[in-house]
């Protein structure tokens, strides 16, 4: 059994949050550079230019990329030969989240659902984090993190189709979701699609799909082809950067597919804004 100090996890989580708040990941930056070059609309081109200038300022001056510094979302794979010394792993991740958001002057965006009271002074600064755990073999902890903003989350949807809907039904549904969203989720977007599983499995898969690096290939050739088809369909909608009209509405489409019940075809579409702040560490 390998023992990892509670404080080591806190520190690692804190550091990844601070880094992600100000430094746009390279995969996203590179994809935006290509999008700016290829965009046909001058207005949208200028918007992407501003987005890249913003990323440079944020990195150089250590300022948050966006005022919506998100809810902290984690996918954690815990090795079955790991023990946290001095506390619970969940508590360490929450503590690291609070420290990172406080120390980097990121915004506390969690609130009570109905009174809308900010939870920073009661539950903790930008707490609780959203954490999805999985147990795997080994003596390491693998932590994937993303800061998930509200604008793109608000246009995300899930639905359980009858199996007859097939691929075509899913493609039409994704187009409908993105078309209705227009400029609200801050395009150029990344679209995460969870297919199969159960209602909640599809939703979690669509979230996890957004953690994949833009420009990486889907290991499943059938899904890889479907990603390309949907990407083209989305870019033909004409929404453009910030909805101002253009040819680059999405940077990428990522699909995660799971086996499902013989009666169902669950689909979830989770949208990520252009400020795709995600990172990954192994302890």
């Amino acid at each position: 059994m390998r023992e990892i100090e509670f404080d080591e996890v806190v520190k690692a989580v804190r550091n990844m949050i601070i880094h992600c708040g100000t430094d746009l990941p390279q995969d996203t930056y590179d994809a935006l550079v290509v999008a700016m070059e290829e965009e046909k609309s001058h207005v949208s081109k200028e918007v992407i230019r501003q987005i890249l200038e913003n990323a440079n300022i944020a990195k150089d001056e250590k300022r948050p990329l966006c005022q919506d510094t998100g809810l902290a979302v984690f996918f954690v794979k815990v090795g079955d030969e790991v023990k946290i010394k001095g506390g619970l792993l969940k508590d360490a991740i929450n503590k690291g989240t609070e420290q990172g958001y406080t120390d980097a002057y990121l915004r506390a965006s969690t609130c009570e659902p109905f009174s809308r009271a900010n939870l920073k002074d009661t539950v903790g600064y930008n707490l609780p984090a959203i954490i999805h755990f999985d147990i795997v073999a080994g003596d390491k902890i693998d932590i994937e993190y993303a800061a998930k903003g509200g604008g793109s989350e608000n246009v995300s949807r899930a639905r359980v189709f009858p199996p007859a809907a097939g691929k075509e039904g899913i493609i039409e549904y994704v187009k409908e979701v993105i078309s209705d969203a227009g400029g609200n989720p801050c395009p150029p977007i990344t679209v995460g699609i969870g297919i199969g599983g159960t209602f909640e499995k599809a939703a979690i898969s669509s979230k996890h799909a957004l953690f994949r690096d833009i420009g990486s290939k889907n290991e499943d050739p059938e899904m890889d082809e479907m990603e390309q088809v949907i990407l083209d369909e989305i870019n033909n909608l004409g929404i453009g950067a910030m909805g101002m009209g253009g040819t680059k509405t999405a940077l990428a489409v990522h699909i995660e597919s799971n086996p499902c019940h013989i009666a169902s075809l669950p689909v979830s579409v989770n949208v990520q804004c252009h400020s795709s702040r995600h990172t990954h560490i192994t302890i």
Binding site: I57, P64, L65, G151, C186, C273
Partner: peptide
């Protein structure tokens, strides 16, 4: 008026 969403560092300045 529309401002560029996600350009918070640039606009803050």
């Amino acid at each position: 008026f529309g401002a560029t969403g996600g350009a918070g560092a640039l606009l803050g300045k």
